[in-house]
């Protein structure tokens, strides 16, 4: 490990972007390969605690790949190879001693397409706490489910239909169910991979509101194609292009006064 825990915590990148605060996760020189193709080129970023960080950029620029490095979801893809360093609270998550199963309980994930399990609403939320042994009794589990559903803003809508399959909900409800499922294991970071791309504007607004509320407890990294969404929900924004971070900084700065011409071109819709 090149950077010790202490150094990493203090490592504050201020390349004109004004990214300052407690560092929750960080990457240094992150390269990702799919077979022969290199998808990410030396990505350095600090993700700050209790903030929403948005990742924007044209399709195929490596945003999702980067996101999936943060909880080692790329491990599932056989041809994928990760080099460089990713730290969580200063500890290298690609270290041999780190169990990806434990890591994913602390770094939760919400996917592009709502993907509830084909089980009941209750089971969907209770599954995570069950496999991680977070509840000692049924009543404790019930409480975790209730709290998670409340934080996801879904509890009132599903309170009398907990036994119904999660797949019977509408798209927006399903996505909030997936958020509740991620929250239920008490993660510290939640990764969201275009969570609203399959939702209608009203459901999108609900989820965006929710993201803003969740910021108080969780560090959130969100990939989005929707620039307005990035501007609305995030405090920090990173612009990816061709597997590299072009610019990273405070959201208002990126959107109003970007330092790089490419960023300017992208956010004004000249390419991408």
């Amino acid at each position: 490990m090149a950077v010790s825990a202490e150094e990493s915590r203090d490592a504050v990148q201020d390349a004109g972007g004004g990214v300052t605060g407690e560092v929750k996760m960080a990457t240094r020189g992150l390269d990702v390969f799919y077979g022969e193709n290199q998808a990410l080129h030396g990505v350095d970023i600090d993700i700050l605690e209790s903030k929403v960080t948005a990742l924007i950029g044209p399709s195929g620029c490596g945003k999702s790949t980067f996101l999936r490095c943060l909880n080692r979801m790329n491990d599932i893809i056989e041809t994928c190879r990760v080099e460089g360093e990713v730290t969580f609270d200063g500890a290298d998550i690609y270290d041999r001693a780190i169990d990806p199963v434990q890591l994913r309980a602390r770094v939760g994930m919400v996917f592009q397409k709502p993907n509830p399990f084909p089980k009941s609403i209750y089971e969907n939320v209770a599954y995570g706490p069950k496999i991680h042994g977070l509840a000692n009794s049924t009543s404790e589990l019930d409480e975790i489910v209730e709290v998670s559903l409340k934080r996801a803003g879904l509890f009132d809508e599903v309170v009398d239909r907990m036994a119904e399959p999660g797949t019977s909900l509408s798209g927006g409800q399903q996505q909030r169910l997936c958020i509740a499922r991620a929250i239920a294991v008490s993660p510290e970071v939640i990764l969201m991979d275009e969570p609203c791309s399959a939702l209608d504007p009203i459901a999108t607004a609900r989820v965006e509101e929710l993201i803003d509320e969740l910021r108080a407890r969780y560090t959130i990294v969100i990939v989005t194609h929707n620039m307005q969404q990035a501007a609305r929900v995030s405090q920090f924004t990173a612009f990816f292009h061709l597997g590299e971070i072009i610019e990273y900084g405070k959201t208002e700065k990126i959107f109003t006064d970007p330092a790089e011409q490419k960023t300017q071109d992208y956010i004004t819709g000249r390419f991408g």
Binding site: N71, M73, I76, V101, Q102, L103, R104, A105, G108, M109, V110, F111, K113, N115, P116, F117, P118, Y127, G128, I131, H132, C178, R181, A182, V185
Partner: peptide, 23 residues
């Protein structure tokens, strides 16, 4: 079996064995 179900289970921290047997 759709890959999204596997991803959902992995994403919540299920072990490969749990992903296979439970999902």
């Amino acid at each position: 079996v759709p890959p999204s179900i596997r991803e959902a289970a992995y994403g919540i921290g299920a072990s490969p064995m749990q992903v296979v047997t439970q999902h």
